[in-house]
């Protein structure tokens, strides 16, 4: 088992910087998820930890060892690729055994490890097949199996579920969570799916343009986003942002919230509730209702012309075109600077 430390890590291709001064502590046994929009450098960072990309600046340590110059296979890490990257010409058994053979493990050890992993992942019956003859989900298990048999101290996953269909994705997500419980190894997981991030992570790292925006537990990021970017990235549907000027002054005062002009107030769709006109924080015209059974997503347009989404337990009684009056608790109002996006506390 091992911790992972990134100190002032930078990466540039030619002269273009893609990772800028990243500092991060990952504890032994922690499940850390990197999230962020496409192109923000999640994969690059993960591949630098794996040793597949050179490190332009800074230091990466695994355990107590600086690994900048250590070969990928000597870092005690194993990687699961988005495309699985199985060896197409080898059987499932050999796919899993290949790395162990390279490490010159004794044959009986290899056999024991491969069979144990296959057992745990329910792929024993496919051991003699080649990857061609497997479904996407089965291939993904083999890819995970190939990582497990190496008994790494750190597992690296790069969007491992993005090629699976929705149902399988939920299943495999659970399986990865169980795997983490069972092995207790450090895991670093890249995704742009915030549901995966929220459900799997002990700690989420939100990245944007090669910089860390915020690090924290899922609940910290949900309750205390440090800026508007993190606020809108965590949570689904996204947080609504309303300029302070467009909110009812009296209601704000009654709630005890000061919001100067130039402030944005963020409210999550699930934190709105309907109220009387006099107590409304904001009033908006109903446009469309998406009824999902267990809850309804209500799309509205405020008087100032901003679209907002409200999550309700059941569809509203009002018809399209009618006005709905909304408010929220003080604790669920997040204030951000309109220009910098920084949280105002």
């Amino acid at each position: 088992m091992a911790s992972v430390t990134l100190q002032g890590v930078r990466k540039s291709y030619a002269d273009v910087g893609v990772i800028h001064d990243v500092n991060l502590e990952i504890d032994d046994g922690e499940f850390v998820v990197f999230v962020g929009p496409s192109g923000c450098g999640k994969s690059t960072l993960l591949r630098m930890i794996a040793g597949l990309e050179d490190i332009t600046g800074g230091e990466i340590s695994i355990g107590d060892t600086v690994v900048n110059e250590v070969a990928p296979s000597k870092r005690g890490v194993a990687m699961v690729f988005q495309t699985y990257a199985l060896y197409p010409h080898m059987t499932v058994y050999n796919n899993m055994a290949f790395g162990l053979k390279q490490a010159r493990l004794p044959e009986p050890d290899i056999d024991r490890r491969v069979r144990a992993a296959a057992e745990a992942l329910h792929i024993t019956e496919y051991l003699d097949r080649t990857p061609k003859a497997l479904s996407g989900g089965q291939r993904q298990r083999v890819a995970i199996g190939r990582a497990i048999v190496r008994e790494p101290e750190v597992f690296l996953f790069d969007e491992p579920l993005s090629n699976l269909d929705a149902a399988l994705r939920v299943n495999t997500r659970l399986e990865i969570a169980r795997l983490h419980q069972r092995l207790g190894a450090t895991m670093i997981y890249v995704t742009h799916d915030q549901v995966e991030a929220m459900t799997l992570a002990d700690k989420i790292v939100v990245l944007r343009d090669g910089r860390i925006e915020q690090v924290g537990s899922p609940i910290e990021l949900y309750e205390n986003p440090q800026n508007a970017f993190v606020a809108q990235f965590i949570g689904s549907p996204k947080m609504n942002f309303l300029p302070a000027e467009t909110l009812a002054k009296d209601t704000l005062k009654a709630l005890g919230v000061t919001a100067r002009p130039g402030t944005m107030v963020g409210i999550r769709p699930e934190h709105f509730r309907t109220t009387a006109a006099a107590k409304a924080l904001v009033s908006a015209t109903l446009e469309l209702v998406e009824n999902l059974g267990e809850y309804a997503l209500v799309h509205l347009l405020t008087e100032a012309g901003k679209e907002i989404i409200v999550k309700m337990d059941s569809p509203p009684k009002q018809a399209a075109g009618e006005v709905i009056h909304l408010t929220a608790d003080k604790a669920s109002l997040h204030r951000f600077d309109q220009d910098t996006g920084a949280r105002i506390s």
Binding site: A50, A71, P72, S73, V77, M79, F81, A85, Y87, P88
Partner: peptide, 11 residues
């Protein structure tokens, strides 16, 4: 990625 998987496997 297959080549990279090989690198991870220490070939």
């Amino acid at each position: 990625e297959i080549i990279e998987a090989g690198k991870m496997d220490g070939v």
